[in-house]
Every structure is written in C-alpha cells, then in structure tokens.
Write a protein that binds this DNA or RNA. Structure first.
Lengths: 189, 189
DNA sequence: TGCTTTTTTTGCCAAATGGCAACTGCTATT
DNA sequence: AATAGCAGTTGCCATTTGGCAAAAAAAGCA
C-alpha cells in the first residue's frame, strides 16, 4: 500500500484524509500464473496496482498467433484504461505471467474518488499520460530496430523481466519468432 | 477555424463566449515544405492545428538515419506535447512535409485558456490521450507485421497520405528501407 | 523419485529484407 | 532546350529472419 501511495504522489499532492480514503477503497487480489486480470470480450471492471508479479497485455493476431503488447511489473498501474474509462468491450487480455499480488479498485469505488478528491482527475490523467508516453516511446523504438537491437533494448528497458518471463512472450513482444530470439541469445552470451 | 472548434468540441462542451476566447488567441501560421514547426534541441513553444498540409515527427537514429515517427495531417493537433507541457528540450523535429497552413497558439496564450475556461484541462487531456492511444495502437501493430503488411496497413490507416508523402518518409515510418518499399509497391500493383 | 508436459535449443533450408551502385524519370531552374 | 538535382527503381548479391522437425533441457506433478 505504501508503494501505491508513493506512486500516486508522484503525480500530485494529497492530504492524509484523502490518502486514507483511497486506502479504504483498496482491495487485495491474488492472481495465479496464467489467470486473467481482464479479458477480451468483456468490459474491464477494475483498476489495479501490481504489488508483486508480472502482468502482460496480449491479444490474438489475424493468424491466431498470440501477440504480447506490453508487460507491467511491480509498482505500476495495470488497467485496460481506454476501455475501462469508456465502458467498452476490450479486445485484449491482461494475464498474470507469474503469480501476482495486486491492489485493486472496483469501477464504482474508483469513480467515487473523482467526486471525493479535488484534483484526482488531474492526478489520474497525468499518470495515464505518462504511462502512454513511455509505452509509445518503446514501441516506436522497436519498429526501426533489427532483431538483435530489439532484444538488447528490451534488456535495458526491462532488466528485471528477462529471467521471469517465458521467452516466447518476449519474442512476441519484440515482433520476432521464439526461434530467432533463442539464437540471438546464444550469440550474445 | 470552424474545423478547430469542431475538433475541440469532440472532447467537451464550450459556450459561445469560450469559443470566442479561443478564437481570439489563435494565429495563422504558414510553413513551406521542409520548414520546421519545432526542432530538436529546443523547447517547443506552440500548439498547432493543421488546417492544410502534412507534418511529420522525426528524429535521427544512432547511425544518423532519419526516422519518421508519425504523420499528422488535416484537422489534427500538432504539438510535441510532452516537451511543450514540461518545458523540456525536445529531441524530435516537427517538419512540414508539404506546404502547410496551421492555426497556432503560443505557450502563453494556451496556458491562459486553462485559467479562463473551466474544464479546459479536461478537454485537453482527453484530446491528448485519444491521440496517444491511436498513435500507440498503430505503432504496436507495426511491430508484429512483415514489411508487406506494414505497407498495406499504412494505406488503410492513412489512405490520403500515400501519394502526398515521399516514399522514403513512409519507409522510415514503417521501419523498412526505401528500396524494400519500392519493391513492395511494384509487387502489389 | 520418476514421469509428463512445456519451454528452449538446434540443424537444415527457404524466404524476406537489406545494401550498394547504376539507371530512369521527373521537376525546377536558367 | 539544356542542365542539375532529387526521388524512385532495379539488378545483383549478402545478410537476416522465418519455418519446421527433432532433440535437449527445464519445470511441473503424481
């Protein structure tokens, strides 16, 4: 919980009362490896914060391949934001890559915070914007890199993930096959 | 100007007085092909709206290659948002791909709107978020596609740009060489 | 521990993409 | 009309990446 508060305070100030209100609405959620935080075909119902573990965002491509779009690890918000916000059916899965411990807010509780805390909307939109920005930057970099460079940048950007995530997921995030990734790793070490 | 107002009203309501205020701060700006709207090494100083023409966002990669990150055409906001907002030196160029006509707001005027119009911050953050979202989606799709598919999706997403933008720019946006793009086009037609 | 299942590696070859130089064609300018 | 300057194309070949099947290694489970 301390981590969540710290995370939020990056984006704006809150007094003790407001912090307590947020804490009072928070619930713990555990997910076992491979379980879903939210699913394609459904409307996302909660906002989460990763206390322990790794979540990936993924979907299925035109030929049925699994595509990993992003990884979210400790001390990050996890939410299918655009669909959560707009009450739309998502086309992505948010899946636990490892066993996870999360702090979650129901949609209802989350929305109550907008009324109860002045400036909450600003805090949220800054947090979301920052997250989009970083995500976009990484994606953009990938497009113009070759496979080896993609993997090297991945290790720079996500140094703590390399050994906790199946290679096939990393490969699909990088837009290369798991075979290629395996060969690249061999040549680097 | 009508287009700008329409664009803004997508993201929230404004009364006539507020609209007039916005209009009163707007300035026209013409850019000739290849001129810059904002430059790497500088702090972005204005927000623009493209009335006519195409702008591209680009930068230089590690080997000195030019990388086109995105295109912005008619009826879209054009701004190096994160750096504009945070007063940071940018590492991107925003360059006119064709002769352009823009509506622009100085940083000072833009900030006055936050004080003068209640809810302006919400409108802006919705607009920015939407833009990020779309941009991110496109980038993400590119990563897992092969060169031919990248070009086909480009034509779907930017049908009006294909014949107005030099192929080399499109190629660098897609993360392929201009030679490959030329061959791909030959095989498709 | 032993067995099954999943993940990763590897060999072999095919297909896709890149790199370079030369060539073509267009446009703008004089 | 002549020329210069880009943008785009093409041929030739090298390099990178993919695809598949089989083997090896690791992880999970009874």
């Amino acid at each position: 919980m301390k981590e969540l508060i710290e995370y939020i305070l990056q984006f704006g100030n809150l007094n003790k009362q407001q912090i307590d209100l947020i804490a009072s609405k928070a619930t713990e959620l555990e997910l076992r490896k491979n379980e879903y935080f939210s699913e394609a075909g459904k409307i996302p119902t909660q906002v989460g914060f990763v206390v322990k573990g790794i979540i990936r965002i993924c979907c299925y491509g035109n030929e049925g391949e699994e595509i990993t779009k992003y990884f979210i690890d400790e001390n990050r918000l996890v939410v299918d934001y655009e669909n959560f916000d707009a009450n739309l059916v998502s086309s992505d899965y948010l899946q636990a890559v490892t066993d996870c411990k999360l702090i979650v807010f129901s949609k209802r509780d989350w929305e109550e915070l907008y009324n109860a805390i002045i400036g909450w909307d600003k805090i949220v939109s800054r947090a979301v914007q920052k997250a989009f920005q970083i995500h976009l930057e990484r994606r953009t970099a990938l497009v113009s890199e070759d496979a080896v460079t993609r993997y090297l940048s991945f290790m720079e950007k996500f140094p703590t993930l390399v050994n906790r995530v199946p290679q096939a997921y990393i490969a699909s995030y990088l837009g290369i096959t798991r075979f290629s990734l395996s060969r690249i790793r061999k040549n680097i070490h």
